[in-house]
Structure formats: C-alpha cells, structure tokens
Design a protein around this nucleic acid. Sequence first.
DNA 1: GCCGTTTTCGGCCCGACTGTTTTCAGTCG
Length: 568
Amino acid sequence: MNKKKIIQVLEKIAILMELKGENGFKVSAYRKAAQALELDSRSLAEIDDITSIKGIGKGTGSVITELLEKGTSSELEELQKEVPEGLVKLLKVQGLGGKKIAKLHAELGIDSAESLQDALQNGKVAELDGFGAKTVQKLIKELEAFGEKRERQPIWVMEKIVHMIEHILGTISEIESYSVAGSYRRTKETSKDLDFVVATENPEDVKKKLLEELPVNEVIAAGPTKVSVTLGYDEEIDVDFRLVKPESYTSTLHHFTGSKDHHIVLRKIAKDQGKKISEYGVEQSDGSITYFDSEASFYAHFNLPFFPPAVRENGQEFEKQSELDSLLTLEDMVSDLHMHSTWSDGAHSIREMVQAAIELNYTHMVITDHSQFLKVANGLTVERLKAQAEEIHAIRKEFPEIHLLHGTEMDILPDGTLDFPDDVLAELDFVIASIHSSFTQSQDKIMKRLETAMKNPYVHMIAHPTGRIIGEREGYNPDVPQLIEWAAKYGKILELNANPYRLDLATEYLIQAQERGVPIAINTDAHSVEQLSFMDVGVRYSQKAWLHKENVVNTWDLKRFLTYIQRK
DNA sequence: GCCGTTTTCGGCCCGACTGTTTTCAGTCG
C-alpha cells in the first residue's frame, strides 16, 4: 500500500462521509489528514509515528495503520455499504451538497443521477422539506447540462475570456479599479471558473451594466456585492464578480485570489496577533478596521513578506518565506531565446521582433526559426538559413542597443537524426532541438531521439520537452527524470515554454530540474510581436516551482550567457 | 476528527446568496 493509495482512501472516506451528511468538520478532518500526508515529503517507511504529523490523530491514524497492515480499511468498507457509488457524482451538481444528497437518499432512495431525474419529474422531490419549486426547477436544468461542461478550462481558454471581460470592465465609468482573482490569478494550468474583484461606490449601476454588457447565458446569483453568471462564449464559463467599496478592494482581491489553504494559515497568524481577516479588511483587537492600498502592505501588516499570487497554494509557502527574494520577477528577465519570424511561421519580420524586444529592455535575444523538416511551418533549408544569417548580420548593425543572436529551432526527426548536420550547427550562435512529429512512438524511441540531441555538442537546449498542450494532448510522453539526468550530464538547458498552451516543462519537473542543477530557460516561443508578452505567464508559472533567478538563464547578463553557450 | 504554552471542551477562516423559512440551513468559494 503506497502513500498515494492511502491519500486516495482518506479522500474517498471524506467524500462518502459528506454524502452521508456527516458533520462538516469531521469530513474536513479526513481531507486535512490526506493533505498533511501528501505535503510531508518523507516516504511512509521514514515516518515512525504517523500521528506525530499535524492533522493526523487517533482516528485517521488508525485508518492509515490498518491500510498499511492489511491493505484494506474497515472504515471505508462500512461507508461503501451505506453510500451508493452513484451519489458521488451528484456532488458535482451545482446546488447539491452532502446534506441535501443524504436527504434525497434517505427519504427517496435516490442512488444515481438517473433516479434523481425521475424523482424530480414525478414531483417526489418537491414534497421534501427544504426542497421547493425553485430548487426542483434548478436541479432539472443542472442535470440536463450535466456532463456536457468541461470541468476545468485550460489557462489559454480562460486567458481570452479574461481579456474580453477586462475590456468590458474598462468601459464602465463607475468602476474605480478591477482585477481578475481566483486560481487564474494564481496561474493555475486550469480553472473551474473566473473571479473578478471590482471597486466601486455605485454597485447597483455596475451590476446593471455588467448584466447588460456581458454575454450572459444565465444569472446564478445577483446580490448587492456578488454577481454570479454563466457566460456563453465558445464554451460556457461561470464568472463571479465581487463589487466592493474602494477601501476594501485590496482585502477583497486578496481574499478571492486564495488559495483557501493560504488563507487558513494566514488567518491563524492574524488571530495569534489578535487580528481578524475578512474579505473587507482587517479587524483589530479594539474592533477598528484597517484597510490597505496594496497586497504588499497587507502582508507587511502581519510582518510577512509579499507572497506572489502564484505561490499562494497549500500553506507550505509560509515555511519557504526566506526563498521569496530568490524568485523571478518580470524585471529580472533580460533575454528571450526562442522566437520565430516571417522566415518560417512567424507573423513579424526579424526587424519587427528586434524592435519589440528592445521595447522590453532585453539586452539580448535569439531568432530561432524552424528547420527544413517542418514544411508546414516553412522551415528553413540550409541555403535559406545562410541567407538569414546575412540579414541578421545587417540588422545587428542597425540596433546596437541589443545583442541579436542567430539560432534555430531544429527538428529531431522521427528516425532519431537531427535536421541539420554539425557543420551547419557550428555556424549558429544558439541551437534549440525539439520534437514536432511522430508523437505516438514508443517511449523508447522518443528517448532515443532525445538522447541524440542531448549528446550533440552543438545543441544548447531542448524546447517544450514533453510536447504537451494543456487540456488537449499529453505530448509524446518522454521519461522526464531521465531527460533531466542527461541535461545535467551533457550540460544542456531545458526550457520552460511560456506559451500558455504549453507551460512545458510542468511544475513538478521544473522542481526536479532545479534540484539536479539543470539550468532552465523561460522562452515565449513567440510567433508574433504580441506573443513576446507570454514571458509574464512564464515568470509567474516559474514561481509555482520556486525556480530561483540564479538557475534561469534569461536572467544572466550577456557576457555570462555568451560564455555559457560557447562550444567546448 | 483534530487541536491546545490561557484551553481536554469548544472551537474549527469567514462571509454571501438563495430558497425556504418566518430566523435560518445549505451551498459555495
């Protein structure tokens, strides 16, 4: 019985207890125990006394012990006898929680979405205490749409919607300030819904305008401070707006940025200081309310450093406070090492890309168009690559304020060879190798391809190492720990591709790469001037892996970078 | 169910909104 299995059992027990209508604190005790186990970095063998872990006591401890000894849990088996499996997915229905589901099961024998549907239709549900006509109508509607909505939307879907909403918020004159909050602001790869915080003295008018301007499919709730709607863009997306007075804006933004676990730890700290945090401000021991004009001053009020939204996750960030200064900010980035121009499939000329990079105050940059294999992207042949070298040479003279390097994003071919011979690569400043084809090959074959690139002395970096597209495809399934080992051995850079479609490598691998001492490059892979702004997403995502500036090559000054990429 | 350097009992982060109630429970984040 491994740790993951045990965590799953604890979570399953929590779910089944919830469905039984158990005391909510008891349910969350099981969730907390599962989380405590997950956050403890030790293996099970290394833990002597399981109940010495905070959050695991007598009850949850005995469940774990039983699992370790017998491989089963009598607690779980009991619950499974009492609670039908079909109820589990009813928890996902909006408006249904443990209490109501328990009642439906106890009084009407409901055990699945289907039997609930029947009971709703034939009027049985409406007869129950606490269930009225409106609830029944809402549930009928919810069940119809059940299973159709994608549960979580990838960050690149959300990004477009966020921009559209921000545009609308910007046109409403009664709004003093606004920001997206929630898991999107924490740069999660996927989000269930979107949260916006809006500061205004005139919530009624703002509410009215929001409901007019937005493509609203359905209004879920519309109170004086909260408006919840389902928007219909390409997909249905739930969006919450919080309308608050300007003085509360910072507190509310912080509150709705989360995460829940971050708040739980922070509120405990506040409590110990005799203060109470709410979404409107901080209540002092004398009952007065303190307001803040920035999140930095909010944290400082508790003698804490500023935590960037991306690290506000499981509460453990408080133990890593001393590392916060080492995390990247956008200002630390002095270069972008992976971008395309009109020579291959980019939308802008080299000159335009250079001008845009100068605007971003970069000291150096690399043009890395595709290689000949990638015909769909108009990949460069050796001849065109040489012609491009001449153009780059000329442009360099025009823009002395930035150091322009000539590179390539060279394909690693399906047969495991590289798209350019060594003598061509030797002429280039910076060589990226990447896989764009035959994703379905066995892991063995994929790793052979990557090994070829890793061993080639002219290759500097592997781009988007797994080929994943968030929420769409898994990629080509390389053995990433092995890849990290090779990178360490052969002195190669691994990329964090900042395109929100990719964010590749993912957090867990970035952590491993940093531990192994492998340098990371955060690059936009921009195919247009606008896409150079993906750097911001990449930097925020890197914070989730606690990447240190020192380990990210884009923070290195030109001299250090050039020394590093010099052929040995 | 878990926790505790004022606590071994009584809290557990805290508040909004809805719907069904006549003062509040359930759900949600």
